[in-house]
Simulated assay, not measured.
Amino acid sequence: MELNLAPQMPDQTVSEGEGGGYYTWSISAVPFLGQAKLAAGKLVLQPLGFALPHYADFKKIGFVLQGSCVVGMISPNSTTENVVKVTKGDAIPVELGAVTWWYNDGDSDVIVVFLGETTDSNPLGPSNYYFLAGALGMLGGFSADFLAGGFGISVSESKTLFKTQNATVITKLKEKLNITNPPNNNRKDLVFNLENALPPVNANNGGSLVSATAENFPLLSRVNLSGNLVKLEPGSMLTPGYTADSSYELGYVASGSARIQIVGLNGQMVLDDKVAAGRLFVLPKFFVGSLIADTEGIEFVSTVTSAEPKLRRLAGVESVWKALSPSILQASLNLSTEETEIFKAKIVETAAIIPSNNN
Protein backbone atom coordinates (compact mmCIF):
# COMPACT_ATOMS: atom_id res chain seq x y z
CA MET A 1 0.00 0.00 0.00
CA GLU A 2 1.35 3.39 -1.01
CA LEU A 3 1.95 5.71 1.92
CA ASN A 4 0.69 9.21 1.13
CA LEU A 5 1.84 11.73 3.74
CA ALA A 6 1.49 14.86 1.61
CA PRO A 7 0.43 17.86 3.77
CA GLN A 8 -3.22 18.72 3.15
CA MET A 9 -5.71 21.56 3.60
CA PRO A 10 -9.13 20.70 5.13
CA ASP A 11 -11.39 19.26 2.45
CA GLN A 12 -14.75 18.92 4.23
CA THR A 13 -17.04 21.75 5.29
CA VAL A 14 -19.15 20.41 8.14
CA SER A 15 -20.90 23.72 8.74
CA GLU A 16 -20.51 27.24 7.42
CA GLY A 17 -22.68 30.27 7.99
CA GLU A 18 -23.00 33.71 9.49
CA GLY A 19 -21.66 32.64 12.89
CA GLY A 20 -18.60 30.79 11.57
CA GLY A 21 -17.64 27.42 10.23
CA TYR A 22 -16.20 24.02 11.07
CA TYR A 23 -13.90 22.20 8.65
CA THR A 24 -12.27 18.78 8.77
CA TRP A 25 -9.78 16.56 6.98
CA SER A 26 -11.45 13.44 5.59
CA ILE A 27 -9.81 10.03 5.43
CA SER A 28 -10.51 9.99 1.71
CA ALA A 29 -8.22 13.00 1.31
CA VAL A 30 -5.77 11.88 4.00
CA PRO A 31 -6.10 8.06 4.19
CA PHE A 32 -3.34 7.80 6.76
CA LEU A 33 -5.60 9.52 9.32
CA GLY A 34 -7.85 6.49 9.24
CA GLN A 35 -4.96 4.05 9.40
CA ALA A 36 -3.40 5.82 12.39
CA LYS A 37 -6.78 6.61 14.04
CA LEU A 38 -6.22 10.35 14.03
CA ALA A 39 -8.54 13.27 13.36
CA ALA A 40 -8.34 17.03 12.92
CA GLY A 41 -10.80 19.89 12.68
CA LYS A 42 -10.73 23.67 12.35
CA LEU A 43 -13.26 25.91 14.10
CA VAL A 44 -13.74 29.49 12.93
CA LEU A 45 -16.02 31.62 15.10
CA GLN A 46 -17.10 35.06 13.98
CA PRO A 47 -18.09 37.70 16.57
CA LEU A 48 -21.17 36.46 18.47
CA GLY A 49 -20.62 33.02 16.93
CA PHE A 50 -21.76 30.24 19.26
CA ALA A 51 -20.91 26.56 18.75
CA LEU A 52 -23.82 24.63 20.26
CA PRO A 53 -23.19 22.27 23.21
CA HIS A 54 -21.90 18.92 22.03
CA TYR A 55 -19.69 15.96 22.85
CA ALA A 56 -17.51 13.81 20.62
CA ASP A 57 -16.32 10.22 20.38
CA PHE A 58 -12.65 11.16 20.15
CA LYS A 59 -10.21 12.91 22.46
CA LYS A 60 -8.31 15.95 21.31
CA ILE A 61 -6.43 19.14 22.13
CA GLY A 62 -7.80 22.47 20.96
CA PHE A 63 -5.11 24.97 19.98
CA VAL A 64 -6.23 28.61 19.90
CA LEU A 65 -4.41 30.14 16.94
CA GLN A 66 -6.21 33.47 16.68
CA GLY A 67 -8.39 35.66 18.86
CA SER A 68 -10.04 34.77 22.15
CA CYS A 69 -13.31 33.14 23.13
CA VAL A 70 -15.23 31.67 26.04
CA VAL A 71 -15.40 27.91 26.49
CA GLY A 72 -17.80 25.96 28.65
CA MET A 73 -16.90 22.40 29.58
CA ILE A 74 -18.52 19.63 31.59
CA SER A 75 -16.18 16.69 32.09
CA PRO A 76 -17.54 13.14 31.76
CA ASN A 77 -17.08 12.48 35.47
CA SER A 78 -18.60 15.78 36.63
CA THR A 79 -21.93 17.63 36.72
CA THR A 80 -20.24 21.02 37.13
CA GLU A 81 -19.80 23.44 34.25
CA ASN A 82 -16.38 25.09 34.05
CA VAL A 83 -16.28 28.33 32.06
CA VAL A 84 -12.91 29.73 30.95
CA LYS A 85 -11.64 32.43 28.63
CA VAL A 86 -9.07 31.14 26.16
CA THR A 87 -6.80 33.19 23.94
CA LYS A 88 -4.07 32.79 21.32
CA GLY A 89 -1.42 30.34 22.46
CA ASP A 90 -3.76 28.37 24.72
CA ALA A 91 -4.05 24.60 24.48
CA ILE A 92 -7.19 23.07 25.99
CA PRO A 93 -7.57 19.28 26.17
CA VAL A 94 -11.06 17.88 25.58
CA GLU A 95 -11.75 14.49 27.11
CA LEU A 96 -13.64 11.74 25.36
CA GLY A 97 -17.35 12.47 25.87
CA ALA A 98 -16.86 15.88 27.52
CA VAL A 99 -19.63 18.38 26.75
CA THR A 100 -18.32 21.72 25.46
CA TRP A 101 -19.60 24.92 23.91
CA TRP A 102 -17.58 27.72 22.33
CA TYR A 103 -18.59 31.39 22.17
CA ASN A 104 -16.85 34.34 20.54
CA ASP A 105 -17.56 37.35 22.76
CA GLY A 106 -14.99 39.55 21.00
CA ASP A 107 -14.85 41.74 17.92
CA SER A 108 -12.64 39.62 15.66
CA ASP A 109 -12.65 36.06 14.33
CA VAL A 110 -11.41 33.18 16.45
CA ILE A 111 -9.58 30.17 15.02
CA VAL A 112 -9.17 26.94 17.00
CA VAL A 113 -7.60 23.79 15.55
CA PHE A 114 -8.36 20.42 17.12
CA LEU A 115 -5.87 17.58 16.77
CA GLY A 116 -6.81 14.25 18.31
CA GLU A 117 -7.00 10.49 18.39
CA THR A 118 -9.96 8.28 17.41
CA THR A 119 -9.28 4.84 18.90
CA ASP A 120 -12.62 4.86 20.71
CA SER A 121 -14.69 6.52 17.99
CA ASN A 122 -17.91 5.10 16.58
CA PRO A 123 -17.19 2.77 13.64
CA LEU A 124 -19.82 4.66 11.63
CA GLY A 125 -17.24 7.42 11.14
CA PRO A 126 -13.64 8.26 11.98
CA SER A 127 -14.73 11.08 14.31
CA ASN A 128 -18.22 12.16 15.25
CA TYR A 129 -19.89 15.01 17.10
CA TYR A 130 -23.14 14.59 19.04
CA PHE A 131 -25.13 17.78 19.63
CA LEU A 132 -27.37 18.42 22.60
CA ALA A 133 -29.35 21.17 20.87
CA GLY A 134 -30.20 22.42 17.40
CA ALA A 135 -31.35 20.70 14.24
CA LEU A 136 -28.87 17.88 14.90
CA GLY A 137 -29.70 17.62 18.61
CA MET A 138 -29.81 14.11 20.01
CA LEU A 139 -32.97 14.68 22.05
CA GLY A 140 -34.80 16.04 19.02
CA GLY A 141 -34.71 12.54 17.61
CA PHE A 142 -36.89 11.12 20.38
CA SER A 143 -40.66 11.04 20.17
CA ALA A 144 -42.66 13.65 22.08
CA ASP A 145 -43.99 11.15 24.64
CA PHE A 146 -40.46 9.94 25.50
CA LEU A 147 -39.30 13.52 26.03
CA ALA A 148 -42.37 14.33 28.11
CA GLY A 149 -41.72 11.38 30.39
CA GLY A 150 -38.00 12.02 30.64
CA PHE A 151 -38.23 15.71 31.50
CA GLY A 152 -41.50 15.81 33.40
CA ILE A 153 -43.18 18.09 30.86
CA SER A 154 -46.30 17.85 28.78
CA VAL A 155 -46.34 16.25 25.35
CA SER A 156 -47.20 19.59 23.76
CA GLU A 157 -44.27 21.26 25.52
CA SER A 158 -41.94 18.49 24.41
CA LYS A 159 -42.98 19.03 20.79
CA THR A 160 -41.53 22.54 20.80
CA LEU A 161 -38.83 22.47 23.48
CA PHE A 162 -36.19 20.82 21.31
CA LYS A 163 -37.40 22.15 17.97
CA THR A 164 -37.04 25.92 18.29
CA GLN A 165 -33.27 26.02 17.65
CA ASN A 166 -32.82 25.49 13.91
CA ALA A 167 -29.03 25.93 13.77
CA THR A 168 -26.95 22.82 13.20
CA VAL A 169 -23.42 23.37 14.53
CA ILE A 170 -22.88 27.12 14.91
CA THR A 171 -25.30 29.99 15.30
CA LYS A 172 -24.80 33.74 15.44
CA LEU A 173 -26.41 35.27 18.52
CA LYS A 174 -28.41 38.45 18.28
CA GLU A 175 -26.77 39.93 21.36
CA LYS A 176 -23.94 39.14 23.76
CA LEU A 177 -24.43 36.53 26.42
CA ASN A 178 -24.18 37.58 30.02
CA ILE A 179 -20.81 35.90 30.50
CA THR A 180 -18.51 38.68 29.30
CA ASN A 181 -16.35 38.18 32.40
CA PRO A 182 -16.36 34.41 32.96
CA PRO A 183 -15.23 33.19 36.36
CA ASN A 184 -12.28 31.29 34.81
CA ASN A 185 -12.73 28.71 37.50
CA ASN A 186 -10.01 26.12 37.34
CA ARG A 187 -8.32 27.72 34.32
CA LYS A 188 -4.91 26.54 35.51
CA ASP A 189 -6.26 22.99 35.57
CA LEU A 190 -7.96 23.18 32.17
CA VAL A 191 -5.75 25.39 29.99
CA PHE A 192 -2.03 25.49 29.21
CA ASN A 193 -0.64 28.56 27.44
CA LEU A 194 2.14 27.49 25.08
CA GLU A 195 3.05 31.09 24.19
CA ASN A 196 3.95 32.09 27.75
CA ALA A 197 5.56 28.86 28.92
CA LEU A 198 9.32 28.69 29.30
CA PRO A 199 10.59 26.77 26.25
CA PRO A 200 12.86 23.81 27.10
CA VAL A 201 14.37 24.26 23.63
CA ASN A 202 15.27 27.82 22.71
CA ALA A 203 17.94 28.44 20.09
CA ASN A 204 19.21 31.99 19.69
CA ASN A 205 18.14 33.21 16.23
CA GLY A 206 16.86 29.70 15.55
CA GLY A 207 13.51 29.26 17.24
CA SER A 208 11.83 27.51 20.14
CA LEU A 209 9.92 24.39 21.09
CA VAL A 210 7.40 24.29 23.97
CA SER A 211 5.72 21.09 25.10
CA ALA A 212 2.71 20.43 27.31
CA THR A 213 2.82 16.92 28.78
CA ALA A 214 1.32 15.17 31.78
CA GLU A 215 4.42 16.22 33.72
CA ASN A 216 3.71 19.96 33.50
CA PHE A 217 -0.04 19.79 32.75
CA PRO A 218 -1.71 16.86 34.61
CA LEU A 219 -5.03 17.02 32.72
CA LEU A 220 -3.26 15.53 29.70
CA SER A 221 -2.98 12.21 31.54
CA ARG A 222 -6.77 11.91 31.22
CA VAL A 223 -6.71 12.26 27.44
CA ASN A 224 -3.35 10.51 26.97
CA LEU A 225 -2.19 13.24 24.59
CA SER A 226 0.46 15.96 24.66
CA GLY A 227 0.92 19.17 22.71
CA ASN A 228 3.73 21.18 21.15
CA LEU A 229 4.30 24.65 19.79
CA VAL A 230 7.30 24.97 17.46
CA LYS A 231 8.61 28.23 16.03
CA LEU A 232 11.47 28.27 13.54
CA GLU A 233 13.19 31.39 12.26
CA PRO A 234 13.88 31.69 8.50
CA GLY A 235 16.28 29.00 7.35
CA SER A 236 16.41 27.28 10.75
CA MET A 237 16.15 23.53 11.10
CA LEU A 238 14.30 21.20 13.45
CA THR A 239 16.74 18.31 13.53
CA PRO A 240 15.68 14.75 12.63
CA GLY A 241 13.65 13.10 15.38
CA TYR A 242 11.15 10.33 16.04
CA THR A 243 8.76 9.05 18.70
CA ALA A 244 10.20 6.04 20.51
CA ASP A 245 6.96 4.96 22.19
CA SER A 246 4.71 4.04 19.23
CA SER A 247 2.97 7.41 19.29
CA TYR A 248 2.00 9.52 16.28
CA GLU A 249 2.52 13.25 15.87
CA LEU A 250 -0.20 15.23 14.10
CA GLY A 251 0.74 18.81 13.19
CA TYR A 252 -0.95 21.92 11.82
CA VAL A 253 0.92 24.89 10.39
CA ALA A 254 -0.37 28.16 11.86
CA SER A 255 1.86 30.45 9.78
CA GLY A 256 4.82 30.40 7.42
CA SER A 257 6.13 27.37 5.59
CA ALA A 258 8.98 24.86 5.55
CA ARG A 259 10.48 22.00 3.63
CA ILE A 260 9.64 18.75 5.38
CA GLN A 261 11.27 15.37 4.96
CA ILE A 262 10.17 12.08 6.52
CA VAL A 263 12.13 8.82 6.28
CA GLY A 264 10.52 5.45 7.01
CA LEU A 265 11.25 1.75 6.78
CA ASN A 266 14.54 0.63 5.26
CA GLY A 267 15.80 4.20 5.16
CA GLN A 268 13.37 5.13 2.40
CA MET A 269 12.27 8.75 2.10
CA VAL A 270 8.46 8.80 2.17
CA LEU A 271 7.99 12.57 2.02
CA ASP A 272 9.97 15.49 0.65
CA ASP A 273 7.54 18.36 0.29
CA LYS A 274 6.58 21.87 1.32
CA VAL A 275 4.27 22.31 4.28
CA ALA A 276 2.56 25.71 4.48
CA ALA A 277 0.03 27.62 6.58
CA GLY A 278 -3.30 25.87 6.90
CA ARG A 279 -1.95 22.41 6.10
CA LEU A 280 -1.99 19.27 8.21
CA PHE A 281 0.89 16.80 8.39
CA VAL A 282 1.51 13.49 10.16
CA LEU A 283 4.68 11.88 11.47
CA PRO A 284 4.06 8.10 11.66
CA LYS A 285 5.28 6.22 14.70
CA PHE A 286 9.00 5.41 14.61
CA PHE A 287 9.50 7.34 11.35
CA VAL A 288 12.08 10.15 11.41
CA GLY A 289 11.05 13.68 10.46
CA SER A 290 12.79 17.03 10.04
CA LEU A 291 11.93 20.54 8.81
CA ILE A 292 13.85 23.51 7.43
CA ALA A 293 11.94 26.80 7.58
CA ASP A 294 11.46 28.89 4.45
CA THR A 295 12.24 32.59 4.18
CA GLU A 296 9.28 33.66 6.33
CA GLY A 297 9.91 31.06 9.05
CA ILE A 298 7.26 28.66 10.32
CA GLU A 299 5.04 28.19 13.37
CA PHE A 300 3.14 24.98 13.96
CA VAL A 301 1.26 23.17 16.71
CA SER A 302 1.11 19.42 17.11
CA THR A 303 -0.54 16.71 19.17
CA VAL A 304 1.35 13.55 20.12
CA THR A 305 -0.72 10.48 21.01
CA SER A 306 0.93 10.02 24.39
CA ALA A 307 0.68 12.05 27.60
CA GLU A 308 4.35 11.42 28.32
CA PRO A 309 5.90 11.03 24.87
CA LYS A 310 9.38 9.70 24.35
CA LEU A 311 10.73 11.97 21.64
CA ARG A 312 14.20 11.21 20.33
CA ARG A 313 16.52 13.38 18.26
CA LEU A 314 19.12 11.78 16.04
CA ALA A 315 21.23 14.92 16.28
CA GLY A 316 22.14 17.18 19.18
CA VAL A 317 23.16 16.73 22.78
CA GLU A 318 20.36 14.16 23.38
CA SER A 319 21.21 12.15 20.27
CA VAL A 320 21.52 8.39 20.50
CA TRP A 321 24.76 8.81 18.54
CA LYS A 322 26.19 10.74 21.46
CA ALA A 323 25.35 7.87 23.81
CA LEU A 324 27.16 5.26 21.73
CA SER A 325 30.72 4.47 22.66
CA PRO A 326 33.39 5.67 20.17
CA SER A 327 34.31 2.16 19.04
CA ILE A 328 30.68 1.25 18.30
CA LEU A 329 30.17 4.57 16.52
CA GLN A 330 33.32 4.00 14.46
CA ALA A 331 32.31 0.46 13.50
CA SER A 332 28.69 1.41 12.71
CA LEU A 333 29.59 4.23 10.33
CA ASN A 334 32.85 2.75 9.09
CA LEU A 335 34.81 5.85 10.09
CA SER A 336 38.41 6.44 10.97
CA THR A 337 39.31 7.24 14.56
CA GLU A 338 39.85 10.89 13.64
CA GLU A 339 36.50 11.10 11.82
CA THR A 340 34.76 9.53 14.80
CA GLU A 341 36.24 12.08 17.20
CA ILE A 342 35.18 14.97 14.95
CA PHE A 343 31.66 13.57 14.62
CA LYS A 344 31.34 13.09 18.39
CA ALA A 345 32.44 16.67 19.01
CA LYS A 346 29.99 18.04 16.42
CA ILE A 347 27.08 16.14 17.98
CA VAL A 348 27.68 17.78 21.37
CA GLU A 349 27.62 21.21 19.75
CA THR A 350 24.31 20.60 17.94
CA ALA A 351 20.91 21.53 19.38
CA ALA A 352 17.41 20.31 18.51
CA ILE A 353 16.95 23.55 16.57
CA ILE A 354 19.80 24.76 14.37
CA PRO A 355 19.81 28.42 13.28
CA SER A 356 20.36 29.29 9.66
CA ASN A 357 23.93 30.09 8.62
CA ASN A 358 22.54 33.43 7.43
CA ASN A 359 21.35 34.46 10.90
Rank of each mutant, 00 (worst) to 15 (best):
S156T: 07
D189I: 06
T164Y: 12
F142A: 09
Y130P: 01
S143E: 15
T168L: 05
T168F: 06
F162A: 05
V169D: 00
A135H: 04
G137Y: 02
N184Q: 02
R187G: 01
L173V: 04
Q165M: 14
G152Y: 01
A135I: 00
A144S: 15
A133T: 14
K159T: 10
T168A: 08
N185S: 07
Y130V: 02
N184C: 02
I153Y: 07
A144F: 10
V169A: 01
K188W: 06
N185D: 09
L173R: 10
L161I: 09
T164G: 14
K172D: 00
T160H: 07
S158L: 04
D189N: 11
E157S: 08
L173C: 09
V169C: 00
F162G: 04
I179P: 04
L132D: 08
Y129S: 11
F146T: 14
D145W: 10
V169N: 00
M138F: 09
L132N: 07
E175F: 15
T160D: 12
I179E: 06
F131E: 05
A133Y: 13
L177Q: 08
E157N: 07
V155K: 11
F142Y: 14
G150M: 11
Y130T: 03
T168D: 02
V155A: 06
F151G: 08
T160V: 11
K176V: 09
K188C: 04
I170E: 00
F146Y: 15
Q165K: 14
Q165V: 13
K176G: 10
L190F: 04
S143F: 13
P182W: 08
N178T: 09
M138D: 10
G134V: 02
D145R: 15
A167K: 00
V191H: 03
Y130W: 08
N166D: 15
L136M: 11
L136T: 01
K159E: 11
I170Y: 05
S158M: 02
F142H: 14
L173E: 05
T160R: 08
S156H: 06
G149D: 10
D145N: 14
T180E: 13
G149I: 02
N181H: 09
A148P: 01
K163L: 10
